[in-house]
Simulated scan of single mutants.
Amino acid sequence: MIAASLKANAAHAPRATRDCSDVEWKVRTDLAAAYRLFDRLGMTDLIYTHMSARIPDTPDHFLINPYGLMFHEVTPDNLVKVDIDGNLVDGREGDAINPAGFTIHSAVHHARPDVGAVIHLHTDAGMAVSAQADGLLPITQHSLRWYNRIAYHSYEGIALDLAERERLVADLGSHHSMILRNHGLLTAGQDVAEAAVLMYYLEQACKQQIMALAGGRPLVYPSPEVCEHTAQQYERAYPRAGVLEWDAMLRWLDGTSGPVGPR
């Protein structure tokens, strides 16, 4: 399975032998690209984090990585299709999915029909902020996107208990981003592009917070009025996350542009 997964690495992989709709293939290529993008960005945890995407023409089915593959090995063809109950709908012999991943992703996809993609990562900065009592601080322009607009979920252990799903989605509510205490970050988007760009900038905000706190000097906090104004600017003055950025990120993945990174 792993050897087969290394054959296609382009962001827009050509259709192989998979028998699926054009709609599903588009989701497969975008989701596989997200895995490779976050691999290039170093936002991985070997085989233990996961991204999923709902298939629009079969909305009770979603795609997720096969358990045991690292991010750079994920391709449109080897993504596993499961239903909300965890039944394998389409996969290769021996495929399985991370049980904790199923708990988290099935919860969000079941409760939020507006969500097309979910990303959950264990990044260094994200996990560090998840362990800080005050959570994400409104101290940088990146972090102000989430001013009063991010959810928190208390740590309950490794997410193997399906009963946790109810509490997880209750905490998420209508938000598109959540910090899982002592655990990591989660973003939910209308599509893969939105969830991926939200995750990129949420991690940047966490990195900047850790760096600012490490400086050991007093922090400057914008006023609540300015914080709210900035959050509304993100919502009203710009297209939703991913609309402008995704194609550029795919070009970077394909090697036709320069590196992606903070400016």
Rank of each mutant, 00 (worst) to 15 (best):
G255W: 09
A96R: 07
L88N: 08
A163E: 14
A212L: 15
G242N: 08
I84C: 05
T123S: 14
A3C: 01
N78C: 06
A205P: 05
H122M: 14
L213H: 00
A3T: 08
V89E: 12
Q209E: 05
D90G: 04
I158V: 11
P224H: 02
L168C: 05
D171F: 00
R54P: 10
A205Y: 02
A34W: 01
G68C: 10
G94T: 10
W246E: 07
R92A: 04
K81L: 14
S257N: 00
F38K: 14
Y221L: 15
I150N: 01
R217E: 14
Y67S: 11
G255E: 03
Q232C: 06
A195F: 02
F102V: 11
L88H: 03
V220M: 08
H176P: 13
V220T: 14
G91Q: 04
H110W: 02
P262I: 00
A214W: 01
F71Y: 15
G255P: 13
V115E: 09
I97Y: 07
S130A: 13
L213K: 06
E164Q: 15
T44C: 07
V197D: 13
L253C: 06
S154I: 04
R112K: 13
T75A: 12
S130G: 13
M70H: 06
S21I: 07
V243K: 09
W252Y: 09
A100E: 02
Q233D: 13
L136R: 12
K26G: 01
T44R: 09
C206P: 07
L144F: 05
N182M: 04
G184P: 12
E156T: 11
T123F: 03
D19C: 14
L79K: 12
A96Q: 03
T230K: 10
H142V: 11
V89L: 11
S177Q: 11
H120M: 11
